[in-house]
Design a protein around this nucleic acid. Sequence first.
DNA 1: TCACACAATGCAAGCGCTTACATCAACATC
DNA 2: GATGTTGATGTAAGCGCTTGCATTGTGTGA
Lengths: 348, 348
Amino acid sequence: MRQTADDWDTSLPTLEDVAREAGVSTATVSRCLNSPDRVLEETRNRVMSVVHDLGYAPNFGARALAAKRTNTIGAIIPTMENAIFARGLQAFQEELGLHGLTLLVASSSYRPDVEEEQIRTLIARGADALLLIGHDRTQGIYDFLDRRGVPYVIAWVYNRSIPRISIGFDNHAAMKALTDQVLNNGHTRIGIITADTASNDRARERLEGFLAAVEEHGIDPASLPIHETAYGIDNGATGFKALMSADPRPTAVMCGNDVLAVGALRMASEMGLAVPGDVSITGFDDIELAQVASPALTTVHVPHRAMGRGAAQMLVDMLEGSRPLESTRLEAELCLRDTLGPCPIDSD
Amino acid sequence: MRQTADDWDTSLPTLEDVAREAGVSTATVSRCLNSPDRVLEETRNRVMSVVHDLGYAPNFGARALAAKRTNTIGAIIPTMENAIFARGLQAFQEELGLHGLTLLVASSSYRPDVEEEQIRTLIARGADALLLIGHDRTQGIYDFLDRRGVPYVIAWVYNRSIPRISIGFDNHAAMKALTDQVLNNGHTRIGIITADTASNDRARERLEGFLAAVEEHGIDPASLPIHETAYGIDNGATGFKALMSADPRPTAVMCGNDVLAVGALRMASEMGLAVPGDVSITGFDDIELAQVASPALTTVHVPHRAMGRGAAQMLVDMLEGSRPLESTRLEAELCLRDTLGPCPIDSD
DNA sequence: TCACACAATGCAAGCGCTTACATCAACATC
DNA sequence: GATGTTGATGTAAGCGCTTGCATTGTGTGA
């Protein structure tokens, strides 16, 4: 078809090749691809068949350069190893695909400096918009984003006091509701193992929800042991052991997420403590681990998929610049399973 | 600095802005960024400081267009929701980052047609190389990749009989080794729950490893029940129930992966069967679930991180075109925990 | 002193695409 | 029949960067 057979495999067909072959201008080919209705059907069919024959595919770089947009959405998540983000991302990607958008993922390993770099990298690579987890980051980054006019949505949190557009649930309220359950079971000596709160507003809000609930119940929050630790099953186990070394020891240990709770559960078993007979344990997130753990973990179910899907829709709307957007609040539901029980009678 | 303050926020600085400000040509700025040693140190310092002042960042599209490469590696995995791929990808990305490469991830939901489309999309978006899982895909795709000269490596499998460059472990051998363990425990009526084998060579090889082992042990493979199902805890549970409805029922159920095994474990508990007292269960992969399950799952530990890291290194080598590459074989190790026990005496 | 090698830098031609604008034909209107 | 309108298509100017080649300036050996 084009040129000799010799260099057939050397270079890829370009718009111009298609145009020449179809006997039209490059502009027409471009229009066939990008706004088909602006081209006569007959012409379009001819062009498209050449496109097909030649196996033509537009060059991404050239397109990005000329059109000043890439149809790429960037997402920076704390880690890929955590099922909660993975699930949300999956839904996010599926929804984006429906709109012809591609997802570019980076993970920050929960490190703010890495996250900042990732954001800049993604923008430099032409991401048209961004999905970010949580509000916690320097003002400098938000300024950067605003200056470049890059739309973004914050996911996994809903906090009415922060004006940025977000989609998520109220971590504070959810943890408070779960804590109320624990309190209603008669527990008063409650320990908590929380994820790092320094640059993680989800963790912080959960902790505050916990504190608010106990205080409302007339318990002095300062009297309760708080163990802060990094993410990981082993850290949950260690944290649990530390909390249980107090005397008198807690009758319930609440955890900032399911992974920590599973670690706690394992340690309880190693220490020969019955759950919930001797001690109650709760988690947060409702990942697969939670229902598989034994006994099945009492936790909070977070709408991961809905958040992912919703975030994608919001971003699409923002890019189309149609309706003015506001934050979306989703519900996180209590998931009462088997690790929460009444406070042991010989409690004191 | 540049232009009036009014449109300061409108357009981003370009190479030309930097060049003008630093009093050099665009070529020199470009060289400062790409091959610093070809520029006088003094000049370079001046240029870099302007780059910094202006907050200049190269435009990805333009760079890709001019340089004909993007420093992007694409990866298509079956699903993000499976911890095994997530972990491997994390390591893969970390290693790529060390070499200034960015990762573009897509997931195919285990669907060959989707995977093919994703591959084309990633290539169209300029991925310089690809990470693929398993060998199973149409020859057409391999031809496409070869024609475009796109380097790729196949991960999660090692199969000496296939010439494509890969990094992984021998699924067949690993499953055979695990099956030998089961056989050594005296089991002869062994059922297996396998993932879909149609377009998944990992699953198929595991199944074949199982069959090879039992046959070698003098058992007719055709006499053993095989249950094939999609991925998911619930499917594992259903499969287990189906297998256990046979009479006489199996004394051991081996599963193609940990997720299925965890489902089986749950169903065993629901059916009031003791594990491994009444029935032994095994998994494959050694994901977190496996050690958290109760009893802890006997499984095969797969070197996820090593595969990810190794795949990245291989791809880097291929892009640099340095050494000629060959496939890498990693070891998968048996992970004997608590769900495999001796065959019950009243077995027959 | 002159020719020459070589290092540092500049010049300018693209890379493949999009899109504002120009062109043209076909038709309707008065 | 002259004029205006409209829709389909072509023309060509970039988008921001890399890089082969040309130019300049410096140090070298004969």
